[in-house]
């Protein structure tokens, strides 16, 4: 699973994961692909996996009865898709759909959770990595909420 090791090494959140822990992660991984328009997961469904996107792009959406799917965020090469597998009740909070033909590395969430229970060092390190990703997503969400480019927002002279 050379591709996953490469994606882990190039992802700042996972760059410090030691080689043994990376190997443990690799043992839960498999390659997968999605066609453009294919639904990857749906809100409320069991969340038993997560993905490292290798090529292509994926949109995260929330469904509104009045407005249909609302595009919240786009994920692309190197991004991690999915963290609902970490916390009970292990169900997806949003929908994910491939925007274009997409290849990814799928990690079996049950396998990874099992390793976290067996090896607390692995669990601690992995949760640190995901905390970093969540922090980045939280910052990005706050920036979106700030409406930076509104009337009060600047942008050069």
């Amino acid at each position: 699973m050379k591709k996953l090791l490469e994606l882990l090494a190039n992802n700042p959140a996972f760059a410090e994961l030691n080689p043994q822990l990376r190997d443990a992660l690799v043992s839960c991984a498999s390659e997968c692909s999605f066609n453009a328009g294919e639904v990857i997961f749906t809100t409320g469904d069991p969340a038993n996996e997560f993905f490292f996107i290798d090529a292509g792009s994926v949109q995260l959406t929330a469904h509104s009865p009045q407005k249909g799917p609302l595009h919240i965020q786009t994920l692309a090469h190197g991004d991690v898709l999915g963290w609902s597998w970490i916390f009970p009740p292990y169900t997806w909070h949003f929908d994910a759909t491939a925007i274009e033909d997409t290849t990814a590395i799928k990690l079996d969430g049950r396998c990874v959770r099992g390793k976290c229970e067996q090896n607390f060092e692995f669990g601690y390190q992995l949760h640190r990595c995901f905390s970093q990703i969540m922090l980045e997503r939280l910052l990005a969400t706050r920036l979106q909420l700030l409406d930076l480019y509104g009337d009060e927002g600047g942008g050069g002279v």
Partner: peptide, 21 residues
Amino acid sequence: VDRATGRWCGNVGVVPQLIQR
């Protein structure tokens, strides 16, 4: 764009997130 409106089918997210790409 920060918010997808209309038929936008491009990227949604903030500029700093694009830097890694």
